[in-house]
Nucleic acid binder design. Structure first.
Lengths: 225, 225, 225, 225
DNA sequence: CATGAATGAGCTTTCATTCAT
DNA sequence: CATGAATGAAAGCTCATTCAT
């Protein structure tokens, strides 16, 4: 048995931290190479999923891009689903970690919320494909049990945001007449959906977008003298 | 020559205005009946597209829902594409008309913008399927030339919104430090994306949602003394 | 029951002679009108079969051409096969009659053969479609029992031609070293296949073609002093 | 990059000359084997096309004959069209090469023409299917752009034949009162159409047929004392 | 006679996946 | 690890034909 991960596609803890256990086990480091190959394939697939959509991307498309035959992909992944799973998992894991860190740092609700917004916008470039898939293909992917964990992660995120909004209302910082849950959803969607047209090379980069949005979010578009 | 429309799937003018020319022909009643049957099928398809997505919905799914065989659908439509085309066209036509009407009525930019927002939220229920398809399947559909007209319609809508935002800035009503185009896109996306979780039977109906969003949009979530 | 012929598609004797029995039965002559309508439809179908081929021509193509719906064709014919059957039958009947007449007239084998050749070329215009179908679609149609009669008719024609060739050889008019049956087949094919490129409006009309071919057939292309 | 040819179906030069480049690569042997499999499938398809016609032969028919599923054929070919394309191309390439060789050898027009006739008859057995398809299905296939090259090839062949006929007329060998183009077409058609009834096992083989036809062509069927 | 709706069988093609080599 | 061949299920679509109205 090799260390190649074909089982569930969910990265094990050590795979994410970068301290590959495989390297320790294999003097020659071949499993690390394998892992690099694997990550390369995931990246290629991600690009295609982002561009054409998950369903419209065939495993042959991915294989072609990698210069191999479609059947050969199954040495690295046990299904097309497991590839996208890997893309999504890595995104969610990173996001959750960043969110936790922001929370841990503490501060006024406005500061925390701003930081959460900035974190979201910050994933737009490194996790473009995952967000694109979530925006375009989630309606399809949600039917598979294997992706249930995404709903759980999202619920947890919602809990966290809504908590901050309520805290802001209680401390008199935020208006009383807004619905925390509703407001969270709108913020969330507004941010993620930008992935469809956002161009990192454009006039505004991700940080610029975040700043712009934070302004509007907290104070609206009206002129307040 | 028959009245069955299989050609381009784009509704004729009289079909959109509501003063159905077909009604006048009702003497034989067949053309109206045919049109009703057709509309019924479109509705069934729309429901399925909304729920499962365009690609994941098979023509057999649609036919099953209608209690006929898949081949029989082709008596009414040229192709699967032409069905979704019909759904989208009817949405865009109605939206464009409503937008024009709002513009024509005039008023301060804040009033016009509020009305535009309300119009958008107002389509959430009657055109749920079209909006759902646009959110979930546009990335796929855009590759087909036949849907190019949607891009044109969207460009026109953008022109209209951005015009109002700029007018508001010029008259000192809206902040100078927001980007009109960017702001429009965020508003647009924030509204349409709600289709994914909006439940008309829930706590807030479409009007309630609109009001809530208009508040946040103009004045932000911060408490302004 | 009307006099409309839906049964086997093979014209009854009186239908071919032109002295329509139907006219006698119906004072109003409606059946004659029906017959004209029917013949018109056959003509339209023939044109399409000639141009696109039998298989590639759909009953909808035919109906479209006639300005009716495909189902309506089945009031006149009981199947697509019966339409082509009618086209072929009328061709073969006329050809057989002309051949018989040529035989009956008698004369030297060279004269008779020339006449037979001329008859064949003479059908090129009035029976273009039938000949085209026979050239292009016979390989497909032959599988259906209903067209077996065409083989019999062809066998009879072959008997007749071969008889003349043999008679010519016996009387010393034709070379001894040619195979009668083989020669017949080549003559036959050479003539009919011209339907693919023959243009009645071109440099040579059907008679011109016949004369040209007769020259070559009897004396070859070599210069004989 | 693999050696499997799915692109245009037109054989590469080395595949036609017989000095298979694949043979050199035989070390692994896979590419040669693949090519053999492919050729085998083409042969099976050719047989079916010849017997039932191109349109009437389904890809399932072909797959059944090969003992595989219809979808599996698409591992080897792009489409049904590309299979027949391969059949026709290989025929035309070989014919063109043989014609060129005959021309290059030179000789009196009568000799050259005789050789051309013999070449045509000579393809009757090895390329039976291609010729059959051309006779029966060309009327259908010609509508596809991909087969335009066949028209060009035919035009080139015509140029070549007509040139020889004219040369014969100028040198006084052939009669002046025959139309070169017309004569060519009749010769051409007379030869190819024999594919419909020619049986290599019969009384005359392809050479016998050719000799018989050459006799009639040059000197006619009349007894010339 | 014609319509309009539907049938039912079949079509070519696609595609994720498997597996012996 | 990769290939090449195949599977098997399903996809969108076509078409001759039927039949109640």
């Amino acid at each position: 048995m090799t260390t190649t991960r074909k089982d569930n596609g969910r990265p094990r803890a050590d795979a994410r931290t970068g301290t590959s256990g495989g390297a320790r086990r294999r003097a020659k480091g071949s499993s690390t190479l394998a892992s690099e190959r694997r990550e390369h394939l995931v990246k290629l697939a991600a690009e295609l999923f982002a561009e054409k959509g998950y369903q419209a991307t065939t495993v042959r498309n991915i294989a072609d891009e990698a210069g191999i035959l479609s059947g050969s992909l199954y040495h690295h992944f046990d299904s097309k689903e497991s590839i996208v799973d890997e893309i999504l998992t890595s995104f969610f894991d990173e996001l959750a970690a960043a969110n936790q860190a922001a929370l841990a740092e503490g501060g006024e609700p406005r500061e925390v919320l701003s930081e959460l917004v900035r974190i979201c916008f910050g994933t737009l470039v490194p996790h473009r494909a995952a967000i694109m898939v979530l925006q375009n293909d989630w309606n399809y992917l949600k039917q598979f049990d294997r992706f249930d964990y995404l709903n759980k992660a999202e619920a947890e995120t919602e809990r966290l945001w809504v908590g901050q909004i309520k805290r802001g209302q209680e401390s008199g910082l935020f208006r009383e007449d807004i619905d925390p849950k509703l407001t969270y959803r709108m913020i969330r969607d507004t941010i993620w959906v930008t992935v469809r047209w956002f161009q990192p090379e454009g006039r505004l980069d991700a940080d610029g977008l975040a700043d712009h949005y934070i302004k509007v979010l907290f104070d609206g578009i009206s002129q307040h003298r």
